[in-house]
Design a protein around this nucleic acid. Structure first.
Lengths: 243, 243, 243, 243
DNA sequence: TATGAATGAGTCTTCATTCAT
DNA sequence: CATGAATGAAGACTCATTCAT
């Protein structure tokens, strides 16, 4: 009988194992020996197996719990905050809680391929919350309309990696913001061809807008242009005054 | 006697092993058995060991080659393209070539901690090219000034993860663009507190700019504001006309 | 978690492994596969590793146990026998119990170079007992004064090799006695030059004492001398009568 | 075609390999990789195999050469020195040239069990020389009559081990002398029972001869006896004067 | 029921031996 | 013939999983 136990100590043990596994996976990657998890939990290896029939299931349980926590946090945000805040707060939450890169990297796999129904259900709930938050934010105009839930998930995965890669945590968080801000309507995504190989050096020699980097048409006479237009000039000015 | 050999078949085998290892690491993660690599390369396990004294060294060789290719591509771009194009093209290159998530995740480790001198030298070269491209792009005004090489590396790692996470490759590439565009001067990074937990729902109820998501000051009377200012109003309008 | 267990079967298995290892090392040398040891012990390879983290440690454990038994035997002798008897009995014990040549040959290494503290302590105890027995025997006049503990150890190693080399065990033991008797005060050790290359054949043509081999001064006339002195002549006579 | 080659360079290579193998076996034990031997010899692994079909044969060749050298040295001694000198010099030679304990320990195996005819013949020659020297020395009265060739071989093996065990080489050589001196007629070998467990401590309390360690009968009155007889008393006196 | 001991399949690595250059 | 590259059979060691206590 797996895990359905009703004795208090059994439930306590299950929880201990789950926590220990969560930490272990995060700190040491998905390859931590089960023995290490058992040690961290302060139980025997057999006890781990009593509650989780194998390592895969344990990993899924950990992941499920993780998702459940995220879902709960998402729902809380949905109830308490404005759509856009809720949405971006939710994403930050996901990213910050996804400590441990091996761990994070495997969130990737969490689309449809996980076989266990419990996990599938959980992933579904997660997607539902995410989607709800996303749509709300989009309706509120806080997020670009051409973004779907899959985009958000993938971007989140990327942010977690970025955060893991950057040793300096504050700097890492800034990069995460920078990335997530790409979801805001104001962000203009460069078309891929825009800066790919086709462009020749002579064209650029002309310089680009110092504010947004957009290409500037050369003008043979007069003072060289520095900005692509009034907006950018204003913006740059404001920045100068503010800075 | 490792690898220095000049016999044609030996060189061929070394190359085969290196390629096979690259693919294997990318597809199956860093845990692929060496036997699998040997099998893919069509050689015996011993041959792998003749060329690479152990798995770690093999991994480093693969990684070194990868970096070397990137360095070469970076230098080519530096010579042939305008700064900003060169820089962003380089980043896209890195991301696109960083197939395989386990693989990518370990680019992370490529700071100083790798012990082998050859790899260290290689990482250095990589950093040098990256830094040169970054600075050139910044001088050209194509990249925000408050970004350092470490930021770029971390962001790149994140982009690679994003790309790996997104099954739909074009969509993934678009997300990458979106992220990299965060490096352009026009991008405004939200201050972290802007959309974190501190904000209460009532405050937001006031709404935010539908274009950029910036908070809007409430006004008790009149038609409710939809944008934070003229610029955004214009932009939104243009989008509507274009869409 | 290595070996500290208190479960009866675990202790039993540990003992089985230790015994099997002892025999295996003795019979097949230090290169026996661990699998062979496991097979002899009737356990799986993993069990060996549960009790001994690696082969070296296993070897040290075997060796430690061996030394401990010798120490115990030495202490028993010290308490129950007269110094000289105790000493020589101890040496014989060591030699006879040092079955297996590879095994024996590595007793050599047992000076300070073994890193494990437990083994070091054990070697120390062994040296202490050996030294005590040696000194007591020397004080009692049963052992030459110009012999130190290191000499005894080395000689013992040699005796064990001799014993191992001689297929006929009683003959081997006799050779061991012969060697150990060299430690008794009555033994005269030939100076190294006495029978080395320097001597020319003509000098020897003169002959040497038939009993002790000492060189005899030539005498041009009379019956040739056969012995170096009266003592030897007597001794030879006695032998002839006895024989 | 193995080794029968007549080309000068082939013969030279064979010799190089043989020397290198000899050193390698002596320094690193019988487990030294063939590659190491090839490296030392400055040839490729294939060349080793061209001359010696496998490692065992190579080892035998090394051993054969070793024995041949010993045989030559023995024959030289036999021709040039008096029997006893020749004999003991021969033994010392064997011992001193048997550097490297693993190597030495395996001389043990050199009785009948070696299958290759060449080696067998060589061992035979060795035995013949040894036996001749032994018998000559015995006839000359320089070696006890109750010693056979097998005894000598085993003792030699033991001496080599002793020498290997004693870090301090001069001290080691002294121990070797001490052991070999046990072969001289003057040496009295204690009967095994003489100092084995049977004796009780009270009996020894009486003390033993300070010169030869023989047990002394207690005498209740008068000055306590220190020596077992006149011979020992004289000997001790001479030592005192000499010392 | 909890424990931790036992198992054995799987992985890395070495090295004797063969074989293409 | 010489070379050194390739091979693959072991051996040490790990760890998920089972099982006796």
């Amino acid at each position: 009988m797996i895990s359905g136990g009703d004795r208090a100590d059994a439930r306590r043990n299950r929880a201990k194992v789950l926590s220990a596994a969560g930490e272990a996976f995060a700190e040491q990657g998905l390859d931590v020996p089960l023995g290490e998890i058992a040690r961290r939990a302060g139980v025997g290896a057999g006890t781990v197996y009593r509650h989780f029939p194998n390592k895969q299931v344990l990993l899924e349980a950990v992941f499920t719990r993780h998702l459940d926590e995220l879902v709960a946090s998402g729902e809380r945000r949905m109830a308490r905050f404005a759509p856009t805040e809720a949405f971006f707060g939710f994403l930050l939450d996901i990213v910050e809680k996804s400590h441990g890169r091996g761990y994070v990297c495997d969130v990737v796999a969490a689309d449809a391929s996980w076989p266990r129904p419990m996990l599938a259900a959980c992933v579904l709930r997660f997607r539902r919350v995410l989607t709800a938050l996303l749509h709300a934010a989009q309706r509120a105009g806080g997020v670009r309309a051409d973004i779907g839930p899959d985009d958000v998930v993938s971007l989140t995965v990327g942010c977690a990696s970025t955060l893991a890669a950057r040793r300096d945590r504050p700097a890492g968080l800034r990069l995460v913001q920078l990335t997530l801000d790409g979801l805001r309507p104001s962000a203009t995504v460069t078309k891929r061809q825009d800066f790919r190989d086709g462009l020749d050096i002579r064209q650029e020699a002309v310089a680009c807008c110092e504010e947004c980097g957009a290409a500037l048409t050369v003008r043979p006479t007069g003072r060289p242009v520095r900005y692509c237009g009034a907006t950018c000039r204003q913006r740059a000015r404001r920045r100068r005054l503010a800075g």
